[in-house]
Simulated assay, not measured.
Amino acid sequence: MTVVDLPAIETAATIIHHGSMEEVGKTFQTLAHWIEEHGYRSLALAREISLHCPENLDEWVTELQIEVTPTG
C-alpha cells in the first residue's frame, strides 16, 4: 500500500455510506442529486475515505467526497 497526500478541496459535498462498496451506487446517486438540487456542479472524481473496514463488508463505513463549485 502507498500513502498519498491529496491536494486540499476548497468546497466539497460529502456523504457517509454504510455497507459494502458493491452497494455504493445508490449513495452516490443521493449525493449527485443533492449537488444538483443545491446549485452546485462537480469538479472532479469522487474521493472515497474508508472510515471502518471490518471483515464483514456489510459493516463498512466510507465517506464519499466530491469537489464542487456553485453553478452560475
Rank of each mutant, 00 (worst) to 15 (best):
G39N: 04
G39T: 06
G39I: 04
Y40A: 06
Y40T: 01
R41K: 15
R41A: 02
R41M: 05
R41S: 10
R41W: 00
R41C: 05
S42V: 02
S42L: 04
S42M: 10
S42F: 00
S42K: 10
L43E: 08
A44C: 03
A44F: 00
A44D: 02
A44W: 00
A44I: 08
L45V: 09
A46Q: 01
A46F: 07
A46E: 06
A46W: 03
R47S: 04
R47D: 08
R47M: 10
R47G: 06
E48Y: 07
E48I: 01
E48W: 05
E48L: 01
E48T: 01
E48P: 00
I49Q: 02
I49R: 03
I49D: 12
I49F: 03
I49P: 01
S50N: 11
S50H: 13
S50E: 05
S50T: 01
S50Q: 05
S50R: 12
S50G: 04
L51C: 08
L51W: 07
L51E: 08
H52N: 02
H52K: 05
H52Q: 02
H52G: 00
H52R: 02
C53H: 07
C53S: 01
C53M: 09
C53R: 10
C53G: 03
C53N: 03
C53V: 07
P54L: 04
P54W: 03
P54D: 02
P54K: 07
P54Y: 10
E55G: 14
E55R: 13
E55Y: 08
E55M: 12
E55A: 15
E55I: 14
E55V: 09
N56M: 10
N56S: 13
N56K: 15
N56Q: 15
L57W: 07
L57Y: 04
D58Y: 12
D58S: 11
D58I: 12
D58F: 04
D58R: 07
E59W: 13
E59N: 10
E59Q: 15
E59K: 13
E59C: 09
E59Y: 09
E59P: 01
E59R: 15
W60A: 07
W60G: 05
W60F: 14
V61L: 11
V61P: 09
V61T: 15
V61M: 11
V61E: 03
T62D: 06
T62R: 04
T62C: 12
T62A: 13
T62L: 06
T62K: 10
E63K: 13
E63H: 12
L64S: 08
L64D: 07
L64V: 15
L64N: 08
L64P: 12
Q65G: 08
Q65Y: 06
Q65W: 10
Q65P: 13
Q65D: 05
Q65A: 11
I66L: 14
E67R: 04
E67I: 15
V68W: 04
V68Y: 08
V68P: 07
V68C: 09
V68D: 00
V68N: 00
V68M: 11
V68R: 02
V68A: 09
T69Y: 01
T69E: 11
T69R: 04
T69K: 08
T69A: 14
P70I: 06
P70T: 03
P70C: 05
P70W: 03
